[in-house]
């Protein structure tokens, strides 16, 4: 789908528009645009509905943050796209093109078969590794994991944070749990309780993550809070 076909009303920077760009995905806040064989551009357009001051601040902060986090993860052996260059003020990140499909689509296409389960296991392990680096993803879903050559690549660090504490990590896991439940309702309990969480715990233990038990206790509390918070009309 070309950007024109997609009816994109957003401003696309000149240097990208001239390369016959193809829209790979329109997420909530960013467009991922495929510009040539091995490069994509992640572009955060301005949101007209948001107060301009807030908009500018959020776009710049998130773009810079995303680059910092991706680079740190890459240095520490977590599978992430390679960043070539970036321009936070314009909301632009240039990075490697991941030629694969999302874990969401894979699960929808194949169901929770052994091959797919293996991907969820790797997902759990990658999260443990990331948390051990005090990084939280902030939007763990099955659409934010790409599968390429039977390996997973974590993408979309737009809401990530560094120096994450126990609460952040617990919420990170809770968000994932809920995302799996809402996206893959029929297999959710199995995927979460039998694959992702055990893999996460195993990897965290291997890494001697001293916060593991605290995170798990807190996850229980976050779950309670979400589930049983008093709801008023």
């Amino acid at each position: 789908m070309s950007l024109v076909d997609a009816g994109m009303p957003v401003f696309i920077p000149e240097d990208i528009a001239s390369k016959e760009p193809v829209l790979l995905s329109q997420g909530a806040e960013a467009l991922v645009i495929h510009t040539n064989n091995d490069e994509v551009v992640k572009f955060r357009p301005s949101k007209t509905w948001r107060l301009p001051e807030l908009d500018k601040q959020l776009r710049k902060r998130r773009t810079a943050q995303e680059v910092r986090v991706i680079e740190k993860l890459a240095r520490n052996g977590v599978n992430v796209p390679k960043v070539t260059r970036s321009d936070p003020a314009k909301g632009l990140i240039y990075m490697e093109y991941i030629n694969g499909i999302s874990l969401k689509k894979l699960t929808w296409d194949l169901g929770a078969n052994e091959e797919v389960k293996k991907m969820y296991q790797m997902y759990g392990e990658a999260i443990a590794q990331m948390h051990n680096l005090k990084i939280c993803h902030g939007d763990l879903t099955t659409s934010n994991v790409m599968v390429r050559d039977n390996l997973i690549v974590l993408i979309d660090f737009g809401l990530s944070s560094q120096e994450a504490d126990v609460e952040d990590k617990a919420v990170d896991l809770y968000v994932l749990e809920r995302a799996i439940q809402s996206t893959h309702p029929l297999d959710a309990n199995m995927l979460v309780n039998e694959i992702v969480m055990p893999a996460y715990e195993r990897r965290a233990e291997e890494l001697k993550d001293k916060f593991l038990s605290d995170v798990l206790v807190r996850l229980g509390q976050v779950r309670q809070r979400g589930r049983k918070r008093t709801q008023l009309g």
Binding site: Q57, G138, D139, L140, T141, V175, A179
Partner: peptide, 11 residues
Amino acid sequence: YAPLPYAVKGM
């Protein structure tokens, strides 16, 4: 506009 914390975690 008084800058306030902005706390979005996924959805």
